[in-house]
């Protein structure tokens, strides 16, 4: 049973890679579908939704060391259901995948974990909140106060997170449309974490502080058949405002964005309001990936250039993608995270 095979089979429900990134563009028979009239309930919705095919707890952080060196950190737990049911023991169809990474200006550490649900090796509980796979944890009494740990063969981290603002619902009350054909997901974020803790890298322990952004999203078919991947931006401006925007690449691009003020009030922006154009590409893992972008949101007078801290932030995991910290300059300054999927050869 080799890893490649698992890679092909795992993220799916997903029969064919050709149908959208990691099979996210396939049909969703038997699984629950996101509905615009669903009202998110907390803390219950912090927990898993086993009736939906795919779900993630996705945290990224922009950090600074004592000497001012910028770092990036990622902690992600994916849930993928082979069938729309839960269960105890080995034969649960709920599979879990963890990705952890630390990005420095000249290195990128990645590691991955796979686990079966149902035996306690990986899972999520809503209250008290805990998400874990193996020894990796995102744990707190609640989502506002978390302790986050992960470890790999060459790195580890142990950091604390405190939310300084409210949860943010994307789209229409957390119902986020992903294509003009109506594919959608439930999507909310906590973009206001303050972070402090320790990174353990081959050169030693490094005390870091910074900000973090947690994305929560679940769906059963978030991509349309012709969509091959996405470019996702989470940008924190020095002004205190934040911007989440993404481009879904397909026969015609679909964009969506949320403008978040420093106080946490949101403006959902329709398709086309947000634009992102690649400025330069970088060769990583045998593919050309755009690592510099021009991002514009005229409605909020945003016209910025986005630049990867480390263009080699390639996630060489079962389903590979690019994920790393970025710096912002132009009409606004700041830091953020960029995720790019579907750049398969």
């Amino acid at each position: 049973m080799n890893v490649k095979l698992i890679a092909i089979l795992l993220w799916l429900p997903f029969q064919a890679m050709a149908q959208g990134f990691a099979g996210l563009g396939t049909d969703a028979e038997g699984f629950a579908q996101p509905r615009p009239d669903t009202r998110l309930q907390f803390p219950a919705d912090h927990g898993p939704h086993p009736d939906y095919r795919i779900e993630w707890w996705y945290l990224t952080a922009n950090l600074t060391g004592p000497d001012g060196t910028p770092y990036g950190l990622q902690w992600t737990l994916f849930r993928s259901a082979l069938a729309p049911r839960d269960g105890q023991g080995w034969d649960t169809p709920q599979l879990w995948m963890g990705h952890a990474a630390v990005t420095t200006p000249d290195a990128h550490y990645v590691t991955e974990r796979l686990a079966r649900g149902g035996i306690g090796q990986a899972g999520v509980t809503a209250a008290p909140f805990a998400a874990w796979i193996d020894d990796w944890r995102m744990e707190g009494p609640d989502l506002d106060t978390l302790r986050l740990t992960a470890s790999g063969p060459d790195f580890a981290y142990d950091v604390g997170l405190t939310a300084m603002g409210p949860l943010v619902l994307h789209g229409q009350n957390g119902y986020s449309v992903k294509s003009s054909a109506g594919q959608a997901s439930h999507y909310y974020s906590q973009p206001f974490y303050q972070l402090s803790g320790t990174l353990t890298l081959p050169e030693g322990d490094i005390a870091v502080t910074g900000t973090a952004w947690l994305d929560r999203e679940w769906s059963s078919q978030p991509l349309a058949q012709d969509q091959t991947g996405w470019d996702w931006f989470s940008l924190s401006f020095n002004s205190g405002d934040k911007l989440m925007g993404f481009v879904l690449r397909g026969s015609s691009d679909y964009t969506s964005a949320t403008w978040i003020t420093a106080e946490g009030t949101t403006t959902a922006l329709p398709d086309g309001a947000f634009t992102a154009k690649p400025l330069s590409h970088h060769s990583v893992a045998g593919r050309m990936v755009p690592v510099e972008w021009r991002v514009r949101l005229p409605e909020k007078d945003v016209d910025v250039e986005i630049k990867a801290l480390n263009p080699d932030a390639w996630m060489a995991t079962s389903v590979p993608y690019w994920e790393g910290p970025v710096t912002i300059s132009g009409s606004h300054d700041g830091v953020g995270y960029l995720e790019m999927t579907g750049y398969d050869d």
């Binding site: 049973m1 095979l5 089979l9 082979l82 069938a83 649960t92 169809p93 599979l95």
Partner: peptide, 12 residues
């Protein structure tokens, strides 16, 4: 695992 391999069918 041969062509009929299917992780889902193997584990569930």
């Amino acid at each position: 695992v041969g062509g009929g391999a299917d992780l889902g069918a193997f584990v569930t």
